[in-house]
Design a protein around this nucleic acid. Structure first.
Lengths: 260, 260
DNA sequence: CGCGCGCTTGAATACATTCAAGACAAGTGG
DNA sequence: CCACTTGTCTTGAATGTATTCAAGCGCGCG
């Protein structure tokens, strides 16, 4: 049996050094010269097709992955339950597998939502490489810390008994922000995941997602046709998320703190 | 104005070297000799009283903290909402502040639930110290990774539309497990947090927590009187959490994977 | 062309929430 | 020492939001 999954590696001349995502990716602390050395430990496997698993829950940990293009979902099955939950979605330049470092295996599966290009970083090699590169260690720590913040934000959203509207608004805004930070349009993008995926991620039934999406459409907040989304009013969506009792600057609103 | 918050530092002869939590704490990779050097960067502020803040949301980041004794809750207020959500609880030997490393400030507040003793690690000093100690860097990474896993588990629990029973059972089991790993009883412990805190953490109203707790009591699963908890049947609690359709080893239950 | 999947929409149901009242314990001040 | 306050928890009844079940639609793919 022949493994073809790594035949794409080292085909072109420049790898990381020419990558447009460099400034937002794990490598952003590295200089052009450092990047060439970094290329030596990086592997570019064949692209994943929609539905293919990048890693599988329970599989033993060996590599981190960087998303070069495309998108994926992280899904997890709790011990006794037979249904999977979507934990998060991955966009280009994000790092897959950080939660697996501490133990020997990946605690969740990661599945491509569309044709997706990946950079693989064998962890052992990454660690020895990082011993000489301060900046890389720092950046790795920052990545993990940022992911912690994101997950905790999600816990906050889910445990606060927010309405379906608030959850979906918050989700769409989050996607918009992340895409925009990566150079895509803030207003117009593809939802590469199904309604069921969105629902699972937000703790809602897929029917509810569908209904609320329709409501948003009728209210003129967005335009949706299938998985094509256009945001018509960022402000209104934001107002939805931030609303609650709707008090802005109320007497006991002592200290408003940004928390992204 | 005199700061008294650090007067406890360096009072005794041995610090980390004599600490019973060494084997579960961030320092566990360090030898006895290394620990003495480590003591130089560690500070032991005065103990916190119930309700006191260890860090406040929005405050600029400077230190990590290790819980030496006691317990705390991490609470977060999303931008526009006026109510706080409990993100997680901290027990002895756990590390506070990891999610703040990536940015300049703490994204959530951490508040003592009872009289609590803390070790403070000024981050700058920790980082330079770690440059010479491979094991410490590794352990820090593991800590963050483990916290990621924990948070993602929580996301999974919350976004899965599990019942109040399942959530509370899972919560109690989690506490039991963590306490046991730290040398406390697996069956009998104090709930140092209020019903409201538990509810906030699980995405339930405090009344629901109270009701379900009562139900568990009547079913003989636990004994509760106020904040004193005794688990009568670990197995039944586990069965509750793992239930769903109740199928164990069902045909399409292809691969049962541990995921703690 | 027909099948299947993903999405939408409707009606009935269920679960947890909300509102409200009361119990209980601990702490405070007269 | 007692009356009173305060905070936390418990319990009941009514309400509501999202779910579940079910049917139908549209589109892409084989």
């Amino acid at each position: 049996m022949i493994t073809v999954s790594q035949t794409y590696s080292r085909q072109g001349d420049r790898q990381c050094a020419g990558c447009s995502l460099h400034s937002t990716c794990l490598t952003r602390g590295l200089s052009k010269a450092d990047l060439e050395a970094f290329d030596d430990i990086m592997v570019q496997p064949q692209p994943l097709k929609r539905g293919q698993e990048l890693v599988r829950q329970g599989q033993s940990f060996h590599s981190l992955y960087l998303v070069r293009a495309g998108s994926l979902k992280k899904v997890m099955r709790l011990p006794g339950r037979h249904d999977e939950q979507v934990i998060r979605f991955y966009l280009p330049s994000e790092t897959v597998g950080l939660e697996a470092i501490g133990e020997a295996y990946y605690p969740a599966s990661v599945v491509a939502l569309e044709t997706t290009f990946i950079c693989e970083l064998p962890f052992e090699q990454l660690v020895s490489f990082a011993e000489q590169y301060n900046a890389l260690r720092t950046e790795l720590m920052r990545c993990m810390s940022r992911e912690l913040r994101g997950d905790q934000r999600q816990v906050c959203l889910l445990s606060g008994r927010s309405t379906a509207e608030q959850r979906l608004a918050s989700f769409l805004l989050g996607l918009s922000r992340r895409l925009h930070a990566r150079g895509y349009s803030r207003y117009r993008f593809q939802l590469t995941m199904s309604r069921a995926d969105i629902g699972s991620h937000l703790g809602l039934a897929l029917e509810t997602v569908s209904r609320v999406m329709g409501r948003f459409q009728r209210q003129g907040l967005v335009n949706v046709s299938g998985r094509e989304l256009t945001i018509r009013s960022l402000e209104s969506l934001e107002a939805l998320g931030e609303e609650g009792s709707g008090l802005i600057g109320s007497p006991d609103d002592r200290r408003m703190i940004a928390c992204r």
